[in-house]
Design a binder for these strands. Sequence first.
DNA 1: CATGAATGAGACTTCATTCAT
DNA 2: AATGAATGAAGTCTCATTCAT
Lengths: 236, 236, 236, 236
Amino acid sequence: MPNKPPAASPVERTQRRAAGSAKSAQRIVDIVRVSREVFSNRGYEAATTTEIAERLGISEATIFTYFSGKRDLSVRVIKDWYDEIIAHIDDGMPRRQSIRAQFAFVVRSHLQLFLVQGTGMCALVLSEGRAKGKPLVDQLVPLQRRYTAPLMDLFSRGQASGELRSDIPLRLLRSMVYGPMEHILWEAIVAHRPIDIDAAADELIGVLWPMLQAPRAELAALRRMRSRIVAATEEF
Amino acid sequence: MPNKPPAASPVERTQRRAAGSAKSAQRIVDIVRVSREVFSNRGYEAATTTEIAERLGISEATIFTYFSGKRDLSVRVIKDWYDEIIAHIDDGMPRRQSIRAQFAFVVRSHLQLFLVQGTGMCALVLSEGRAKGKPLVDQLVPLQRRYTAPLMDLFSRGQASGELRSDIPLRLLRSMVYGPMEHILWEAIVAHRPIDIDAAADELIGVLWPMLQAPRAELAALRRMRSRIVAATEEF
Amino acid sequence: MPNKPPAASPVERTQRRAAGSAKSAQRIVDIVRVSREVFSNRGYEAATTTEIAERLGISEATIFTYFSGKRDLSVRVIKDWYDEIIAHIDDGMPRRQSIRAQFAFVVRSHLQLFLVQGTGMCALVLSEGRAKGKPLVDQLVPLQRRYTAPLMDLFSRGQASGELRSDIPLRLLRSMVYGPMEHILWEAIVAHRPIDIDAAADELIGVLWPMLQAPRAELAALRRMRSRIVAATEEF
Amino acid sequence: MPNKPPAASPVERTQRRAAGSAKSAQRIVDIVRVSREVFSNRGYEAATTTEIAERLGISEATIFTYFSGKRDLSVRVIKDWYDEIIAHIDDGMPRRQSIRAQFAFVVRSHLQLFLVQGTGMCALVLSEGRAKGKPLVDQLVPLQRRYTAPLMDLFSRGQASGELRSDIPLRLLRSMVYGPMEHILWEAIVAHRPIDIDAAADELIGVLWPMLQAPRAELAALRRMRSRIVAATEEF
DNA sequence: CATGAATGAGACTTCATTCAT
DNA sequence: AATGAATGAAGTCTCATTCAT
């Protein structure tokens, strides 16, 4: 089930004092929740521990009791966010249904999850990617990978079964799927225009799906021929 | 040609004193040039007026003689950057050639321009889009629109002429083109992997173009092409 | 012998609750022992109750159950240290032997004790001597006096018996003995140069002893010594 | 002449902005002067930039305009202090007079200079010697060496000319001279007892000078004999 | 026009200490 | 007796911005 408290999953190593009790766990959850809001509204640099503490009605010092610094806190926020959306995809994926249905589920979920949180989290991840020392990236890349894994697996299986075309590398497929989604979300956010997620998802799938399918024979052959000729003419 | 002084085009509105002399104009150009470097290397928050001044070998105070603040300066940097890439597209667009050729030019240009400047400018724009008082967005959206205008016009004409399918709204087309490009660029940046722009462009166009064409039109076009080639080969 | 639990000697005045049980006494001993390490490694200000608690594997709060504050704790550390070295001198002083032998013992002991503990404790004492409310000094001076007492007594008796010159005040003698020792130790510490304590002690005594003797007395003593040795060698 | 502004001597490298004008130079002098007071009253850790700024009636930020941090400031304070006392010795040394007169001058100067500033500066140097990264020591040791150089040169020449005994290494001589002086000063400080510098100097010289002179022949021979015999007896 | 100088405001972080349990 | 949890107070340092010259 989605939205189960993700704070419980990884053992706390970053905080200063061990957190065994329920009270501690709740504190951590609260801090992470509020921090997510602040980080995603303001961005890493502009977010302040002062604001986080104020919103929680606690002392700033308390935050540093549980997290060893602002950077540490932001890492935790990002991790939890990823954990949530990964869990959501994992739990809801209709594995028994068709590839198209599963694909549609991922698209719809992505749009939903990212629209709810705004682009704030994207921007946070984005800005953290350029942190001075790059241990951040090392922690982020696996998460990113885990997140896109279900869809990539799906595509992989589809290609193996012949249902999906194999002449496009998975890497490009990923960009062709996630790229437009992010673009659509970004436009919706900056324009303050509410978005009909189901409609947008359908529309998007309507465009993407034909692209993913194995093309019919003649079309495929013609396309291959064209590519070869273009290549040949470019040799001069 | 790109790199013509973009400072000349828009009237200076942000600076406090009118800049009549050539010397002043040069100062502004220098400040903006260096600021672009710093902002795109460090991001908005981490960039400092100190560094900008140091790189220029001038006093920090001088910057404030020409710009009313850091925010103001960053707006100018963004605007000039947009002016540059818009000019680049405008100047180089092969208007006499086929729609496909024009489309390919835009894709290649985008990848080039954004990769050269790093994602720094993207991130800057992104972070500025979130500034508290958000008059920024109001200034940014038109720029974005002007930037994508040439491609949108192209698509528009293609749809009118029947060369491109009309069952996809332009808005979605834009996301389908710019979204994947940004995703590809982003991946290249975070992975520190150098990217073969021409190859990436060809690959992307290879996937996108068929999608853009009218379903019937593609088949028809390919058949026409084959016929012409066969005819051509028979001329020997 | 040194290292007998010094906690037993002075009555606990600083702690909040009387420490009657053996368990409590052990706690105090442990805290003081670890605190000495931390204080002498880090200095008063840089030492933290956090580190002391961590090294002991107890809660910080527990420390405050036994000591009313950091300052209080440091005072106790200093006192116990003095108690130890005073006991060491007291126990080992070869009272039956010559004044010179006793003098040599004190010198050697001082060099040993202070080198082993590093300059950490010296620096601690030094820094505490400067605390704002300066009741510290009042507690330190008597300790210092007790520590140097054995040597001062020795000198006193030596002057009375005519073995040591009487034209130098005791106060100056003390500076002439402890001053060079501290200087030597300090040099060894900052240069990270290991020091041969016995060699250094002999060297120092070799210079100091003639200075201490009555000018006539030294010559007389040396002549007597030669006579006795000559006599002794003739017994064969 | 002593007490000439030492701030002028080394080129400023540590501060952020170049300091060419007289105003800047004065600021730096003021900050260093007040910082010396605060550092020597409180010690490095307990001294605060807040107090320094308050005493000067300026903003804390101003301090950081001229010095890149607290550590940097303390280094400067120490350096200037050394420069002052080195200059004092250098300028006043009665090079035409007897070795004894020169020796007396150094002793008197040392007592004077260190008493004026209290033990604060000694303690500061002492505590800085244990700074985490040890670039501090690297800067301090040469200063220390420069400071003791005049006296060491003097001793060296005295030994060469036969006026001073040569059987004591210079290193030990240094400890025998500076050690007692520091001890005397320290006692005077902690006891809040005013000290008659000239009397103390005369007393000290009276004890030290005979020790430094070449001993008369018989005494020397007897001492040597004694040393050899002691060594021989210890071989068992 | 340019800038040297100064700073207010605020950031993150540390740590000794308290208190209910 | 012991401690988990919380925090007030303070510390160092940064930086955009102002202003007299």
